[in-house]
Simulated scan of single mutants.
Amino acid sequence: MPRALITGASGQDGVYLMRLLQARGYGVHALMRSPPETTQRRLQAVGGAPEAVAWVAGAAGADALTALPELVKRVAPDEIYHLAGQSSVGASFADPAGTWRSHLDSALALLEALRVGATSARLFLAGSIEIFDPRDGAPINSATPLAPRSPYAAAKASLTLLAREYRRAYGLPVAVGHLSNHESPLRPERFVTRKVTDAAARIAGGSGERLSLGNLHVARDWGWAEEYVEAMWRLNQPDSAAECVIASGTSITLEAFVAAAFDQCGLHWREHVDVAEGLKRAGEAARVQADAAEAERLLGWRAQIAGEQVARRLADAALAALRRR
């Protein structure tokens, strides 16, 4: 039985990845710093088997540099998926130092575990297309120049550079998946996608509230998280690529996302949404367009759910959650 270790297992991607690996016969070890009960319920809700997971208490900060290599040696995984880290671009501006540490402390510890021979596992690092320069208008792929525009993106860019150097200098099997925005009902409510779809569902239910948003003209590639973990797994297999952009290739404006979500709830968004200047982010890229052909070429993977479909699925989930209350 192959064995996998997942950091950040309590997050959206960790839960879906646990289910996928279980379905493929893996023994799964889930690393987290919080009690596992909530994650067990989330895993069960998406069809996974929480009783089949080995739940492992995690370490953070300086402790991770010594604790993680020891843990990796004890678990002896065949594959490691490093998904841990603060995942909100907006929140990274409020806590840049914490964002930096959350991504790089444990990543460096895992890279060191590979370097010193504590494990021969393949290591997947969750990156982001936020690290790349979108200004020339060309679709982003892993060869696009780096130009991070937030503390979150700067941390992910540093993660990518670390991975490249450990591959070059030590020949280690390290892969970086540069992920576009990818959503699901498991996404925390602080993210704009959930903020939009949850508000639309509440308004449809008669809340009478209004939704305030920033720049509605920004365009992003929103995909479906359950599909993206398949691409993560493919990238972490022997003889796979070292880096790959994982994205749908479909970018839509936030306005189009909002319109689809409200329409799914039987509403017209203009009657319920306000634009707040204070919510606009200075220096934000107007449009991020990803090259979906890279993942299709390197991994044989292509997203099936994107853009307005994501908005409608999240709206349906929000409406269903409201009915259950």
Rank of each mutant, 00 (worst) to 15 (best):
G206R: 13
N181G: 10
T197S: 06
A154C: 15
Y81D: 00
T119Y: 05
G283R: 12
R234W: 06
Q40T: 05
L146E: 08
R202F: 08
D239A: 15
R302K: 15
E243G: 01
A60P: 00
D13G: 05
L322C: 06
V192M: 11
P35H: 13
T193A: 15
A30L: 09
A97F: 06
L235T: 01
R24F: 05
D198P: 00
W222R: 08
G11Y: 03
L299E: 01
T193V: 11
G14D: 06
G137N: 12
L65H: 13
A225P: 01
S10W: 04
L83V: 04
E183H: 13
L211Q: 02
D221Y: 04
R24E: 14
W55Q: 03
A163W: 01
G214K: 05
S120N: 15
S150F: 08
G48F: 09
A91H: 09
T250Y: 03
L114G: 02
R122Y: 08
V89C: 05
A64T: 06
M32S: 09
T7D: 06
T38V: 13
P35Q: 14
R167P: 00
S248D: 06
G249K: 01
A311P: 01
E230V: 12
A286S: 14
G85D: 06
T7K: 03
A293C: 12
D263E: 15
P145S: 12
N181T: 11
L162Q: 09
L279S: 07
L104D: 03
S87I: 02
T39K: 01
V174M: 09
D136E: 13
L114E: 02
G171L: 11
T38G: 12
L235Y: 07
W55A: 04
P134H: 10
V176N: 01
A286K: 15
Q237D: 09
W224R: 05
R167W: 11
R190L: 15
G8N: 08
A64D: 03
A30N: 02
G98R: 07
A286L: 15
A52Q: 15
G307Q: 05
A290M: 07
Q22M: 10
E294I: 07
L216N: 02
W224H: 04
A320Q: 14
P145Y: 14
A276F: 10
R3N: 05
R167N: 06
L108Y: 07
M32L: 15
A225W: 03
S212L: 14
S212I: 07
S120C: 14
R164K: 14
